[in-house]
Design a protein around this nucleic acid. Structure first.
Lengths: 344, 344
DNA sequence: ACGTTGAATGTTAACGCTCACAATTTCTGT
DNA sequence: ACAGAAATTGTGAGCGTTAACATTCAACGT
């Protein structure tokens, strides 16, 4: 036996095999596969039958090599176990799939410039056609902004960055809504449990809160700072429970609000009778806190979908036709954790 | 100008360009890139310098085409916005990255056999070298079992399936721990809020609960059935709050426990004084429920990592050497939502 | 000094697909 | 019935990389 082994080798069928079986040229098979015009119905049928019979699968690497398109998009995520990022990722994936793309994920431990650059590079080397960066921190956004990349990149997060296309949430607006609602109910002022200082979401929500207070001529209390976790909300809550004149608290996210509620409960401060509490995000559990949490809803899935839409726009090349900054406004959801001021 | 345009075209550099600049053959460049032996240090240096100068990036499609290895793994996920799946995905991604693989995700809406098969096929067509299926439902597991696939597949979830390599959690064991702990505290029996009937997790936890009761000679109450959501736990809680002789409830997950706690609170049933509550999962928020929730902890990240490890084992070919079913035992975490029986 | 070895490098041929173009067939209208 | 157009099919040449083999070159022992 020579090097060219005989017969029944069990290798994956390739286009040529299909062509031979169908009695056509490989090019015709390619045409059928890609829905090219000018293929007679019966030849198409013959080719399809051959494909079925051999269970032929086109080799995506070969196709990618020649077309220079990988049909793959990259996502750089962060803290992807949190509800927000996970939902965005989900939204992105759904949208990508229905647009015919695959999604390669890289989830980061840290969002410093180098990590982001590295992640994007990795993805690019991999041949992705575009990248979505879930970039909630200041450092990440600036990293994305000065990213040297030959592939289109869009960011999703907060901020007013204009150097890179992005979709963002009206955090300032949402925080303003929350704060305003509390003021409207007669609260003299509103305390705030902020998120980490280097997150844009934190900054924007804090700013929305602050400016609303200032516009209303209300005093601006010292912020308590947490790290998004229920634990940190609890600790902030312990401190706040000790302040007798607090009647309203706006938490930068629902998890911290949960911790806060626990601390207030332990401290014997009734919600909402003594203290009103508002969160941010409207995670699915928020309606089942004790008491049910008034919060600012943002649709993470939608956020992801829009980000992908933006990216696809960039890819289609009509980069300048679509607006490169999409903003989604959140919405205040009223529940029982908020009430009017009751004079003691 | 002819078709062969002159000069300063801005196209990506390829291996040949590097070779020319370094004054070697493209094969030598390849050797340097792949760390092959027999390259003189100074030529290696020259090549690396050329690579840097041109900012050359190897084309992964070309490499994949010839090596038949895509350096990519697939993950089929489900309900990936939940804490559990999201954490597993995260664990998988981390592990994959450090093993030099990329991860392509597909997240499913439904887990029927066809969807799973379709997702795996999509991934396979894409050229992934292996697939992890996060398959918590009965239907998914059997789908995976009868999956016709030329790529290695491992599942992560519950169940005792032996036809496909998998890593699973000792749900029965965990549920038994929880139930046993309540019985030890003097509760006559333990009620159960189960998850959806078609999830393996549900079935196993229910079975662990039931068999522990039976072993202790305790009566087995009717189960309440939820859908994992806090909402469904709340509704179960409304019903349970109406039953005067309930003193202990084991919920199949923490979210339902949250809803239950809310319902009991509204119904004026004190936890743990009147009713003890135990959850499952130990999501990060569980410690901040009112009261803090006793629950069964499972390490989702570890689960994902182990699944990937298993998959890598399959890939290395020592398929039969490693055990093909890894089981991870969860652990009961004691908090204030549980107490001894207090006779009224 | 010289063949022999092994290290270092080069050459050629795939990998499986799409693109550009050539060749062939099948319709048109008159 | 026949030129010309249109539809349909085939041919050859890459895409950028690695694998297999061929070649060159320095070093060694005798």
């Amino acid at each position: 036996m020579g090097t060219e082994s005989a017969g029944t080798e069990q290798r994956q069928p390739v286009m040529a095999d299909v062509a031979k079986l169908a009695g056509v040229s490989h090019q015709t098979v390619s045409r059928v596969l890609n829905g090219a015009p000018h293929v007679r119905p019966d030849t198409r049928e013959r080719v399809l039958a051959a494909i079925r019979e051999l269970d032929y699968r086109p080799n995506s690497a070969a196709r990618a090599l020649v077309t220079r398109r990988s049909q793959t998009l990259g996502v750089v995520s962060f803290e992807s176990t949190l509800y927000g990022p996970a939902s965005m990722l989900d939204g992105i994936e759904q949208a990508a799939r229905s647009a015919g793309y695959f999604v390669s994920v890289t989830s980061l431990r840290s969002l410093d410039g180098r990590s982001v650059q590295e992640a994007v590079d990795r993805l690019r080397d991999r041949g992705v056609e575009g990248v979505v960066v879930i970039a909630p921190q200041t450092s990440a956004v600036s990293a994305v902004a000065r990213l040297s990349s030959s592939v289109p990149v869009v960011a999703v997060g907060s901020g007013n960055q204009t150097q890179v296309p992005m979709v963002s949430v009206g955090n300032r607006f949402g925080a303003g809504q929350a704060t305003g609602h509390l003021l409207d109910l007669g609260h003299r002022t509103v305390h705030h449990v902020a998120g980490p200082a280097n997150w844009l979401e934190s900054q924007d929500r804090e700013e929305g809160w602050r400016s609303t207070l200032q516009a209303a001529g209300a005093p601006v209390p010292e912020v308590e700072r947490g790290d998004w976790s229920a634990r940190s909300g609890y600790q902030a809550g312990l401190r706040i429970a000790g302040l007798p004149d607090v009647t309203a608290v706006f938490c930068a996210n629902d998890h911290m609000a949960l911790g806060l509620l626990r601390a207030l409960n332990e401290g014997g401060r009734a919600v909402p009778e003594e203290i009103s509490v508002v969160g941010f995000d409207d995670i699915p559990e928020a309606a089942y806190f004790i008491p049910p949490l008034t919060t600012v809803r943002q649709d993470f899935g939608e956020l992801g979908r829009r980000a992908l839409e933006l990216l696809l726009g960039e890819l289609e090349g009509d980069a300048r036709s679509a607006p490169s900054h999409v903003r989604i406004q959140p919405e205040l959801v009223l529940r029982r954790s908020v009430g009017p001021v009751v004079r003691r």
